[in-house]
Nucleic acid binder design. Structure first.
Lengths: 189, 189
DNA sequence: GCTTGAGGCTATCGAGATTAGCCAATCCGC
DNA sequence: GCGGATTGGCTAATCTCGATAGCCTCAAGC
């Protein structure tokens, strides 16, 4: 029996791809094994458990998301950076719903956990979206949480098919981003 | 062996209580059975499947949530109704995280599904929170979706322990509600 | 008190995660 | 190249949990 040449990273990649394809809830060790042309128990030579696999997918997702937002806001500032970053986040979640769900299912285990660093990068990319608004330092944390709340809330609702009315969801998103942008701009004085 | 005198409603109640206690993800048929002093297979005389149980919990949760918001906004209007409704929703989710999670896990099966009606009540109670703002009809759906996005996003993040920085989450919530209130008030013209 | 159906139970199945233990493939120093 | 050590596959088996089958009794109505 020839070896498949797996590594933890390869297993995580396959898991991430499958999560996007079949949905995070349907992800199973058996499915990942099948995708890799291997029997289920073999995966445990590279990954300690399903939770470990999910955790690795989460790290990957957080880094990819942070990269997406960084690329989108590159060279932009203020409202432009804000809208571009928001659209990038939404696009990422729509393109990779399973990965994003994995990211929400995992929690960082401590300061040395790579997930901690990856989530920190995402948080920093959101903070960067707010830089142009000259927000009073005392309100910065609130604005950041609001931003996170909206982006996360919209993403999860859209992915779960939560918007049932047939009005264009795209319009609603841009309307919401515009609403927040105006509010943030009228914050300084 | 004396009969336990179960009904679908009693099973759903036990499931809802357990979901809040141990977390929705930990909810199992065995746990519900144990709580009711019965063996697992007996539950299937009252509930067709675990999905059915979750669905019933979801209906209950949606109705309770709609009631909470209705009670909180009773006799109030405009900003006051808005903030009271938002606080009521947050309170409900904090008090009943498992039920709320069940509500998000289930989807209505059709127009006759009681869940459809219950979710409609929730939607209506959110819409009522916006009544005082004289929103342009063309923007109403967007404002409603934004409201839902924020309330849902905040609730899920808070329940999942998503806010790690130690600033007061309560403050962030009222700040966000205030932010939206001001934005909505400056919408009309 | 008899019948009958609902509601409880035991036994069992099947899926899916995980572990144990075997054995071949690769790698490393010689 | 060669031989051992290690790595990475495999089969077999365990455990948990949802779900089904089929039995058997309780209790309501005649």
């Amino acid at each position: 029996m020839p070896r498949a040449g797996l590594t933890p990273a390869i297993v995580a990649d396959a898991g991430a791809a499958l999560a996007d394809e079949v949905g995070f809830a349907q992800l199973s060790m058996g499915l990942v094994a099948e995708r890799l042309g291997v029997k289920t128990p073999s995966l445990y030579k590279h990954v300690t458990s399903q939770a470990d696999l999910v955790h690795r997918i989460a790290v990957q997702a957080a880094n990819e998301l942070a990269d997406s937002i960084r690329d989108a806001t590159q060279g932009r500032a203020g409202s432009e950076a804000f809208t571009a970053g928001a659209q990038a986040m939404r696009r990422y979640v729509k393109d990779h719903p399973g990965r994003y769900a994995a990211g929400n299912a995992a929690s960082p285990a401590g300061p040395d956990d790579p997930l901690t660093a990856a989530l920190g990068r995402v948080l920093a990319s959101w903070a960067a979206m707010l830089h142009g608004y000259q927000i009073d330092p005392g309100q910065e944390i609130h604005a950041l949480r609001m931003l996170r709340t909206m982006l996360h809330g919209f993403a999860t609702l859209e992915v779960d098919n939560g918007f049932r009315i047939d009005a264009d969801v795209e319009d609603s998103f841009t309307w919401m981003i515009d609403f927040v942008d105006r509010g943030l701009r009228s914050l300084d004085r």
